[in-house]
Design a protein around this nucleic acid. Structure first.
Lengths: 337, 337
DNA sequence: TTGAAAGCGTTACCAC
DNA sequence: GTGGTAACGCTTTCAA
């Protein structure tokens, strides 16, 4: 049985309240009493029972994070950064992976809420915001990376429109004129990136045939590359081959690039490729992959700040939003000059 | 304010105890009463307060995991597998990253214990077991990947000696005769892998000069590659160059391989390279990297089983141990035939 | 500056 | 089958 606050109080001949005050250095306590208590606390290696504390204070010091996939570099970086930032504020991170399954995600969220989290952070893979609506009754909610039109919520993510623009501008600057896009799912993220990409092309007077915009299913890591490879085949089978591709994420880009190299397409001379996410292994590839960086580390730390601010707020004000600007990381796969 | 068990009881004209029984389908309750309660519970979207439940049952349904680095593919795979397996058993995973800092690790562990975890799982980066000794007073402890001689504890990991042997046998079978090893830290893992490697060489009558066994500092992800590159330079500067290298982990191997390719060394013809860990991006590299697979997913699920078994045990018996057998994954970097 | 009493939301125990 | 009562370990409030 672990030592309890009460045990220490009895042993030292003071009340439990006094010990409690000493531990949280409450002002209403004499220095001598406090020293005496803290010394004994250390000797006994006493650990306050946060469960009991939570019950009475109503705050758990637990923050929940639900992501589609913990192996995905983008999300593991966020998890790491968030966990580190929260630690300094005295919070703990509970993590769950939804395996990109909306039902499982909803399930995980429900379970998490039973732990009376101080805040829940979700990179959601839901089709719509229906499930998330009732979540909000449980406390603070922050959406990560992806939000839902019509669902007003705290949010941290990047400017996806800008990401698409950046990629397009870069490829055009490298001399590409026939630009294709292997796009992502039909949600806010996929749509905005495609829109930004196409808008930039239009500004430069470049036409993009419909057959240059390829759809892919949303996919877990394993399948993602295969989808990229398949999409590349479809692009290269066309009479007019594209000379530049922007892929929704690096996984698709890697798949596309590997297939291109296999089939003898020279990269970047014949075909420039750029992805999105800037996964940490991009620079280790046979041809290092250019990518639009989503700033996972900053997303994590901004989320931590937002959490602190939400918890500090006495009443729930209007939703907070942090939209970060993506940055371009140019490597060999798109560098033609 | 969320709905409480008590509220439901009052509304339905039954006692709190009865509602509690219905929720955990306790046998001592009539079917009709139970149905009535469960229906209302669902309507109200009631979520039991696990904090309160924990306080009275003494079990938190929280499992802690502390790893050196969440971005490290080996550990993120373990985290994912463990989290998935635990979910099915009704447990939750709390994750913390120690950034490979022993002091920070100890700190994280202390904090975690305050949450009254049902079990703590640690992939430790401590120098010795001193800090972990007093952790055990807090409940169950499982060491992951790395254990400490003289510290008897539950453990899940691979047979590191075997890992070294596998790598050596493979390189020898590929025709290598001058084998080098870029070794890991001087702990149980680094030592055993080196021992297994050298023992296999000896069995085949191969000599290994001391200058072929290179030391590296323990290092986080960013620096790991640089260390590998540096080690490769030292090896290739020798009069007699090695024709095969076993690296302690894939990060070192990638660094070494990239430097080798940069300097015009042909892989695997002049130099065969094999790493350890089988990171998910091994097959995406310019020259796909051979590796000894540590079975991260199985480590995660075995840990989950062990957790369940430890918690079920009324009294703490002798430590449980699961030593998995590593497997060889051959790719282009070492395949000479 | 200290502490007694009341409670946080739930479950265990044992009467009925 | 059902429910009253007493915890679980801590903090809050307020009187001394």
């Amino acid at each position: 049985m672990p030592v309890r606050l009460k045990d220490i109080a009895k042993e030292l001949g003071v009340s439990a309240v006094t010990v409690s005050k000493a531990l949280r250095d409450h002002p209403d306590i004499g220095q001598k009493t406090k020293d005496k208590i803290l010394r004994r606390v250390k000797e006994l290696n006493y650990r306050p029972n946060l469960t009991a504390r939570s019950l009475v204070t109503g705050r758990s010091s637990l923050i929940g994070l639900v992501v589609p996939d913990l192996i995905h570099p983008f999300f593991s970086e966020i998890a790491k950064a968030l966990s580190a930032a929260l630690r300094q504020k005295g919070y703990f991170l509970i993590v769950a992976s939804s395996d990109s399954d909306p039902a499982l995600e909803q399930n995980e969220i429900e379970h998490m809420l039973q732990h009376r989290l101080d805040c829940l952070v979700v990179a959601s893979c839901q089709k719509d915001a229906a499930g998330l609506r009732q979540v909000r009754t449980g406390g603070h909610l922050i959406l990560l990376d992806r939000n839902f039109p019509g669902f007003s919520s705290n949010f941290v993510g990047i400017d996806d429109y800008k990401a698409g623009e950046l990629a397009a501008e870069h490829l055009i600057a490298q001399g590409c004129r026939r630009l294709a896009h292997i796009r992502g799912p039909h949600n806010n993220v996929g749509n905005r990136r495609a829109e930004g990409f196409l808008a930039a092309l239009k500004r430069h007077g470049l036409e993009t045939p419909d057959s240059y915009i390829l759809e892919t299913r949303e996919s877990a890591d394993a399948a993602g590359e295969a989808l990229g490879a398949e999409a590349l085949d479809r692009l290269m089978a066309q009479a007019q081959r594209p000379d530049g591709i922007f892929c929704f994420n690096d996984l698709l880009a890697v798949g596309a690039m590997m297939r291109a190299l296999e089939t003898g397409v020279r990269i970047p001379q014949e075909l420039a490729i750029i992805g999105c996410g800037n996964y940490h292994y991009c620079n280790k590839l046979g041809v290092p992959l250019s990518s639009v960086d989503q700033g996972a580390v900053e997303i994590g730390s901004r989320a931590a700040e937002m959490i602190a601010s939400l918890i500090a707020q006495p009443t729930s004000n209007k939703p907070q939003t942090a939209i970060l600007t993506p940055t371009l990381v140019v490597r060999a796969s798109s560098q033609r000059q």
